[in-house]
């Protein structure tokens, strides 16, 4: 129990709320969701408030993020995809800010809970399904029938396509969740080695140098992962939205 690496993922109530037998308490997770949204929103809002023709450094960060996501979406889904720009941008910013806030010691990582990442993935897939059927009607089902496949193979291919479509929300959510969870556990374990070895006197303290270096290196890696997972989430969202826009490939 000394350095329980799971402890950081525990959810604790701050304001208990119970409706209809379900627990809707405002928890540490909720608090960090609010912090994520507030930090990201405030950053974007305040850095662009001067509307500088020549951007300040912070303003250009907001602008670069905007153009980064905009070009990503345009490349993946064409200019029609720009109608989903607010969604993709919000998802990217939310995941990125949640991941980065999670890098602070003692901070809770919102995206380290499968239910959160799964909800976000369902939001993406739900948007794809709703928009796909609304826009193309049953023509959206062409998504599962690739062109140029021999008639004999069609049942098999359709089955594979459906399975791959259904696995999308799972892979999308588990990828983010598992990356954040594993990274934070690893960091905690190595940091735990430092303290437990350090308690063993001089020899232990000397031996603790290695896990300390590992902790430092892993921290850098985790910052990369924090950005990369937000990026991957946004890219895949763009690609799935492309299916909703152009189901015939």
């Amino acid at each position: 129990m000394a350095t329980d690496p799971i402890h950081q993922f525990e959810i604790s109530r701050i304001i208990p709320i119970e409706i209809g037998g379900l627990d809707f308490s405002f928890t540490n997770s909720s608090a960090f969701m609010v912090a994520t949204v507030a930090a990201a929103g405030a950053f974007l809002y305040l850095t662009t408030s001067s509307r500088g023709l020549i951007p300040s450094r912070l303003q250009s960060i907001s602008e670069m993020t905007y153009e980064f996501i905009a070009s990503m979406l345009r490349d993946a889904a064409g200019s029609q995809g720009m109608r989903f720009f607010p969604l993709v941008f919000s998802l990217f910013m939310f995941v990125l800010m949640a991941n980065l806030l999670g890098m602070f010691p003692y901070f809770f990582t919102v995206t380290s809970h499968i239910v959160v990442t799964f909800a976000l993935a369902i939001l993406v897939i739900g948007t794809v399904l709703v928009y796909g059927f609304w826009k193309h009607g049953f023509g959206f089902l062409k998504l599962f029938v690739p062109e140029g496949v021999p008639a004999v193979l069609i049942p098999l291919v359709v089955a594979i396509e459906i399975v791959s479509f259904l696995s999308r929300p799972v892979s999308l959510s588990v990828r983010l969740f598992a990356n954040m969870l594993a990274g934070h556990i690893t960091l905690k374990v190595f940091a735990g080695f430092v303290t437990s070895l350090g308690a063993l006197g001089v020899a232990g303290a000397t031996g603790a140098i290695l896990p300390l270096a590992m902790t430092v290196a892993l921290t850098g890696l985790e910052f990369l992962v924090a950005f990369l997972q937000a990026y991957v989430f946004a890219v895949l969202t763009c690609m799935y939205l492309n299916d909703a826009l152009h189901p015939g490939h």
């Binding site: 928890t27 969701m33 809970h113 239910v115």
Partner: peptide, 13 residues
């Protein structure tokens, strides 16, 4: 913990 997380995620997001 899921109902609480989902509710607050929906509100904040």
């Amino acid at each position: 913990t899921y109902p609480s997380q989902l509710l607050w995620l929906a509100i904040t997001f």
